[in-house]
Write a protein that binds this DNA or RNA. Structure first.
Length: 103
DNA sequence: ATGTTGACCGACT
DNA sequence: GAGTCGGCCAACA
């Protein structure tokens, strides 16, 4: 496991996020271990595998962190709403409610 | 090897 | 609330 690239560990954590829940980059980094939130974001940027529910990863403010130029920006919100995640009037997600808990 | 960058975070103004 | 700054550390030129 530890021999696997850092990206692999991060993606593995993201796959564990249940449907209808969201996790922050810092959270993913913490579960992946020996990783900073920045690396989690960097890993997502290089992601091209649809097997990873990348749309369930958001920033600590509960907002979608994504360059608006990219086509995936609107898609992330769409996918989340499809899973039952409700956005606030300011395009925010209530982490208190939808945040991923280890359980 | 050195320097820049980044789907971030937290603290501060 | 919004804007700025430093820290973090792997990936890249």
């Amino acid at each position: 496991m530890s021999a696997a690239p850092l990206y692999r560990r991060i993606y593995d954590v993201v796959r564990r996020i249940p449907r209808g829940r969201v996790a922050t980059y810092g959270q993913v980094a913490a579960y992946a271990g020996r990783c900073t939130p920045r690396q989690a974001g960097y890993a997502m940027a290089a992601l091209r595998d649809d097997d990873v529910p990348w749309h369930r990863v958001i920033n600590s403010r509960g907002r979608i962190s994504f360059p608006e130029n990219s086509r995936g920006a609107g898609q992330q919100r769409l996918l989340l709403e499809e899973e039952g995640v409700v956005f606030g009037h300011d395009g925010r997600i209530d982490l208190k409610k939808y945040g991923w808990q280890e359980t």
